[in-house]
Design a protein around this nucleic acid. Structure first.
Length: 281
DNA sequence: ATTATATCCTGATCGC
DNA sequence: TGCGATCAGGATATAA
């Protein structure tokens, strides 16, 4: 589900909500997460929440020792925070089932804290957890597109020897970290570049447009709290807003916002690509 | 070095 | 209303 803007949204909201919370109870519901030794986080306090690539980094501390819980949401994962109610209220079971938190059928992991409860909910069970000693120990295979190092020149160097078509290349997390299937198509439309272009063959002017659009599209999406396509939820259970601004994704057959010709869909490396054949060359 | 394919899972949707 | 096929925003291992 979540690409960089959605993960950034979750990280920002969790950061504001749960910093200072101390973990009083850890419950692992999914055996797939058992190897992470999540129980050892008992007694830790949340110090900060950030984003590393597409992953949420929850920085924890106990007795001045830092540890980082890295959560990858993959396709369907969500991190939901429910602050403790000021007063304990009795909730009917059917109400609980539909509340943002607590009744979720697919809760994989739960941290009960003094100030609220954090749940990792993941219907498809693709999501992963890992614990690292510190943020600096988390490996980052590619460059973060919102970092200062990600200049047009840096993008040009990355692209130089790539023989792949551009759209699948943009999904490579060992080059640029954070793009996924929605934003890759959106960025290419906004940059006016065909998804079929060979990555290494872009002219300098196209590289600059691509660089501009990678940064501005991601930034705009973050401002809108991400894209809710079918089920992305912010940490408080609300929807993002960027789906209103999607130009091509899931718009096959609908008129291009620029030239009115129908948007086309094709499959590249097993994933759908959406594009306007006239506006993207 | 690239590229397709299968795989991990479940749920939603669509055609019959 | 039910059933099977197909498709999902991710990523990796393997094969070609």
């Amino acid at each position: 589900m979540p690409e960089l803007p959605e993960v950034e949204t979750v990280a920002r909201q969790l950061s504001a909500a749960l910093c200072g919370a101390r973990i009083a109870e850890v419950t692992v519901f999914d055996g797939k997460l058992a190897h992470c030794e999540l129980e050892t986080l008992l007694g830790h306090r949340f110090e900060a929440v950030g984003r590393i690539g597409k992953q949420v980094a929850l920085v924890l501390q106990r007795a001045k020792r830092e540890r980082v819980l890295l959560v990858h949401l993959r396709m369907s994962g969500r991190l939901l925070w429910q602050p403790s109610a000021p007063q304990q209220r009795v909730v009917a079971p059917d109400q609980l089932l539909h509340s943002k938190l607590g009744g979720a059928k697919h809760t994989r992991l739960r941290f009960r804290c003094n100030t609220g409860t954090l749940e990792f909910v993941d219907p498809r069970r693709f999501g992963t957890c890992a614990i690292y000693p510190s943020r600096a120990d988390v490996p980052l295979p590619g460059i973060d597109p919102l970092s200062d190092e990600f200049t047009a020149e840096a993008l040009g160097r990355l692209l130089k020897d790539a023989r792949q078509p551009l759209k699948p290349w943009l999904l490579r997390q060992d080059r640029i970290v954070g793009l996924g299937n929605i934003y890759a198509s959106e960025i290419l439309f906004r940059a006016g570049i065909s998804p079929f272009c060979i990555a290494g063959a872009l002219r300098a002017s196209a590289v600059r447009r691509l660089h501009d659009q990678i940064r501005s599209t991601l930034s705009a999406a973050i401002e809108m709290c991400g894209t809710t396509f079918s089920d992305f939820q912010q940490s408080n259970g609300e929807s993002g807003g960027f789906q209103e601004f999607l130009t091509v994704y899931e718009r096959e057959g609908l008129p291009c916002v620029r030239c009115k010709l129908p948007i086309e869909r094709t499959v590249q490396a097993g994933r759908s690509s959406y594009y306007c054949p006239k506006c993207q060359r």
